[in-house]
């Protein structure tokens, strides 16, 4: 009888010992994969990238500036009375993502609107003072945002994100 013919039926005869050894190899292989996956997640220095402080004293009502925070654009817009009015007057049932205007700005600071300038549809940067609601308009796929940064029309599913920020002084805000 040849040695090889042993091998043919030997393949089927798996016993507990062989299965355990195989399981160890499997677990080891899976464990080895994780570092290769996790290395693509944000590194410690990126995660630690802290806040940006912005001087807003030079912004006049009806103006907006764009600053960079964690590599993303942030809109800081000083709204006019009319714009605030337009934002508060909306019926919540007309909104795809209902939110009142006063949760979107700091208490007593209704004229200051701070938003992450990234369209919630697919990540383009919307243009300010444009679109049907005079808030923002995203040129990529036509989403219209109002003067509170809420989605009103178009494919975007949610309102523009409000980042974590605080007023350090009346003319200084700290984002992040």
């Amino acid at each position: 009888m040849s040695a090889a013919s042993h091998g043919e039926d030997g393949v089927e005869r798996r016993d507990f010992l062989v299965i355990t050894a195989g399981a160890f190899v499997g677990v080891g292989a899976v464990g080895l994969v994780w570092p290769f996956v996790d290395q693509m997640n944000p590194s410690a220095d990126v995660l630690a990238l802290s806040s940006t402080e912005v001087d807003i004293s030079a912004i006049e009502p009806g103006q907006s500036i764009t600053v960079s925070w964690r590599g993303k654009p942030v809109f800081i817009r000083r709204r006019t009375e009319a714009e605030i009015e337009a934002a508060t007057a909306v019926d919540l049932s007309d909104l795809p993502d209902p939110e009142t205007d006063d949760v979107r700005h700091k208490e007593g600071k209704a004229e200051w609107l701070v938003l992450v300038g990234i369209c919630t549809h697919l990540g383009c940067v919307p243009l300010g003072f444009q679109g049907e609601y005079d808030g923002w308009f995203c040129p990529c796929h036509g989403s219209h945002y109002d003067t509170s940064g809420r989605i009103r029309k178009g494919p975007a599913p949610t309102n523009l994100e409000v980042p974590e920020y605080d007023f350090v002084t009346d003319t200084q805000i700290k984002i992040g």
Binding site: G7, L17, V18, T20, A21
Partner: peptide
């Protein structure tokens, strides 16, 4: 474990 498994499998020869 693999050494033991190797002994076991090669014992078929």
């Amino acid at each position: 474990l693999l050494y033991a498994a190797k002994r076991r499998i090669w014992a078929r020869l």
